[in-house]
Design a protein around this nucleic acid. Structure first.
Length: 646
RNA sequence: GCCGGAGUAGCUCAGCUGGCAGAGCAGCCGCCUUGUAAGCGGCAGGUCAGGGGUUCGAGUCCCCUCUCCGGCUCCA
């Protein structure tokens, strides 16, 4: 049989030659490094015999696919170790996931941190044993026998269709119903760590039994493992909940679960973002509007929320009727639609664009709440454009430009996804053809690369989603542009066309930040609390070296405040070192030091956040001018001369 | 909502098998007058999340509630 290799060369082997033997024939080093292989595009074990002509790629540490294989094998090693310590544990699923793996166990007693340590030690022994992972094809009857004591595996087994090949994998004492593939032997699992335990429902179904999940991570090298653990540490340090407290930006109180208290400093950031957005939207033809927070059920009946979404709404008692007929709004769309219908609209008015930062409430289940990223009260940067169908492409192009501008100023990179018609949907195919065509044309005209997500659109129309990456590589879905053909009907929206006839507009829902709360959480973590000057709650702290300079310092601070620079004076009777340490930990962009010499000369010694001992003596006026300029231009970098670390 | 873990001073955390509630930092008061990441000394600060129970005695053991954390589910 013929084997084609990635370099294009072809070799002949007898039928039944294994991938490993192919690797050996190329080089012993390759054979030793082989973790898995890709045969005709499918990832398989290296021990797999080749039955016919094939394209073969040997997967070593260098390929990303081999990492998934390694991690899945690590999950088996984990299960092997758990079985040694808790022989009665029944096994669920144990897949590779992003950055690691997990395995679910049905056990009477949950795992403790001490258990985790022991299990980890046991895993090292399993790895040391260097048992091969052996694949075996079995028939259903044999599989039932093998897993007679593992009801979860039996359940999975019964789901496999008759045509499917049933495989089991064995490593030493451990046997698992598993499709594979695996690395050649347990000895390949060298660099791993168990991270935490958590409960999980069997099959993700809250009506089924609770399993206990162990999460771990595994890598090809010690270096990669350490880097990953370091990244976790870094993420912890950047955690917005921690920085929110340390930088005094916001807090939560048990009396208002899921709703943040914004302190003065946090509110400055919040308002700066809102103000910036309003300013830019006004320049871009949006109407900035406010609508009521509380509505009676009439609105929700029209919008359809009363039927499907009521559980998630905060209902309010009407004293006159004694009924909970009112609700805090969970979204802005319906009230914007009402605003649209409040007047007769002409084609000349379109597009009409409403933007709102109103407060919304959603009654999230208590277990879902988490810091600022999952809250019950929040403000979306919500906008709806009402337009004629032929305007879609142009309008979407503008919106994409707007998103690009906002993310760009903040230094956020993003990728886009184009989601098309789902199986369950409204409207006929012709409508979807037009909608998807217009949206795609707009997206393509921007020149952005995008990922196609067939079937991922909303039931009422296709959409474009924006995933933003933060400075430590995590992705967040933020922006969205969604076409909506359902609500114009529901709310009976119309406009008079050039032909003097009534037409239906199309709605585009659009958000850039998502919610301000969640977005600020992302920004805090992205900047690690070190905000660009224009967003920093305190932009300059003036530090007199001794009490002698307090007067001079206060005067300077007053001058800065007069040109709109947020300034504080630290005139406590402390050493300069003390004051600098505090300003650095508070991430204040500029420290303006005033000692005897500066007071005398009317200058200031500027220390830049994070730049260490370097200082620059400048005139006070020049300093004010430069800071002002950085605020106005929303400069990301702090410091004045040349490239310098933030 | 469900499963598991946690809640001790403003913050970070000690407090063993039940026996008088502690430290560092922050705060306040004093001294020091300070030149680029913590000067020195003192003082004050607690319904041990809340409620109930067991016990001669509960921060510690049991039950209920609240909140937070990690997941599941859901989602902006």
């Amino acid at each position: 049989m013929q084997v084609r290799l990635p370099d294009g060369s072809e070799r002949r082997y007898p039928t039944g030659t294994t991938v490993l033997e192919v690797a050996e024939s190329i080089g012993s080093r390759l054979a030793r490094a082989a973790l898995a292989a890709k045969v005709n595009g499918q990832v398989v074990d290296v021990a797999r015999p080749l039955e016919e002509d094939a394209t073969v790629e040997i997967l070593t540490e260098k390929s990303s696919e081999s990492l998934d294989v390694l991690r899945h094998s690590a999950a088996h090693v984990l299960a092997t170790a758990v079985r040694r310590i808790r022989p009665e544990a029944r096994i669920g699923f144990g897949p590779a996931i992003e950055d690691g793996f997990y395995y679910d166990f049905e056990v009477a007693e949950p795992f403790t941190p001490e258990d985790l340590k022991r299990i980890e030690e046991e895993m090292a022994k399993v790895a040391e044993a260097d048992d091969p992972f052996e694949r075996e094809v079995v028939d259903r009857a044999r599989a039932r026998e093998l897993f007679a004591a593992d009801p979860l595996k039996l359940e999975r087994l019964e789901e496999l269709g008759d045509g499917e090949v049933i495989t089991v994998y064995r490593n030493g004492p451990f046997l698992d119903l598993c499709r594979g593939p695996h690395v050649p032997d347990t000895g390949r699992i060298k660099h791993f760590k168990l991270l935490n335990t958590a409960a999980a429902y069997w099959r993700g179904d809250s009506n089924r039994q609770t399993l206990h999940r162990i999460y771990g991570t595994a890598w090809h090298s010690k270096r990669e493992l350490e880097d990953y653990l370091h990244r976790l540490e870094e993420a912890k340090k950047r955690d917005h909940r921690r920085l929110g407290r340390e930088l005094d930006l916001f807090f939560f109180h048990p009396t208002a679960p899921g709703s943040a208290f914004w302190t003065h400093r946090g509110t400055i950031i919040f308002n700066a973002l809102v103000g910036w957005m309003v300013e830019v939207l006004l320049e871009n033809g949006y109407d900035i509007v406010k609508t009521p927070l509380l509505f009676n059920k009439g609105l929700w009946e029209v919008s359809g929320h009363w039927g499907k979404y009521r559980e998630n709404m905060f209902l309010v008692l009407d004293n006159e009727t004694g009924e909970h007929d009112f609700s805090l709004k969970p979204m802005n769309c319906p009230s914007h639609h009402l605003m649209y219908t409040a007047k007769k609209r002409s084609y000349r008015d379109l597009p009409i664009r409403y933007a709102t930062q109103d407060v919304l409430h959603r009654n999230e289940v208590s277990g879902a709440l988490s810091g600022l990223t999952r809250v019950r009260q929040f403000q979306q940067d919500d906008a709806h454009a009402y337009l004629a169908e032929e305007q879609i492409s142009d309008e979407v192009g503008r919106m994409v430009g707007l998103l690009d501008y906002f993310y760009g100023v903040l230094g956020l990179e993003y990728t886009t996804k184009f989601a098309t018609r789902p199986d369950v949907r409204i409207g006929d195919d012709e409508m979807w053809d037009r909608a998807e065509g217009a949206l795609l044309a707009a997206l393509e005209s921007t020149g952005l690369a995008y990922e196609l997500k067939p079937g991922d659109g909303a039931f009422y129309g296709p959409k474009i989603d924006f995933d933003v990456s933060d400075s430590i590589g995590r992705k967040w879905q933020l922006g969205t542009i969604q076409l909506d053909y359902a609500n114009p009907d529901r709310f009976d929206l119309g406009f008079t066309g050039e032909d003097n006839r009534e037409h239906r507009p199309v709605i585009i829902h659009r958000a850039i930040f998502g919610s301000f709360e969640r977005f600020i959480a992302i920004l805090i973590e992205h900047y690690a609390g070190a905000f660009p000057v224009w967003l920093a709650p305190v932009q300059v702290v003036v530090l007199p070296i001794s009490d002698e300079q307090n007067e001079s310092a206060r005067q300077f601070a007053g001058d800065l405040a007069a040109v709109g620079i947020r300034t504080e004076v630290d005139d406590r009777s402390e050493t300069l070192n003390y004051k600098i340490r505090e300003a650095e930990t508070q991430k204040v962009p500029y420290m303006a030091v005033i000692g005897g010499r500066e007071a005398e000369a009317g200058t200031v010694a500027v220390r830049v956040r994070g730049a260490g001992r370097k200082q620059e003596i400048v005139t006070r006026q020049a300093f004010a001018g430069r800071v002002r300029e950085q605020v106005d231009s929303k400069t990301l970098r702090v410091g004045f001369n040349g490239p310098r670390e933030m």
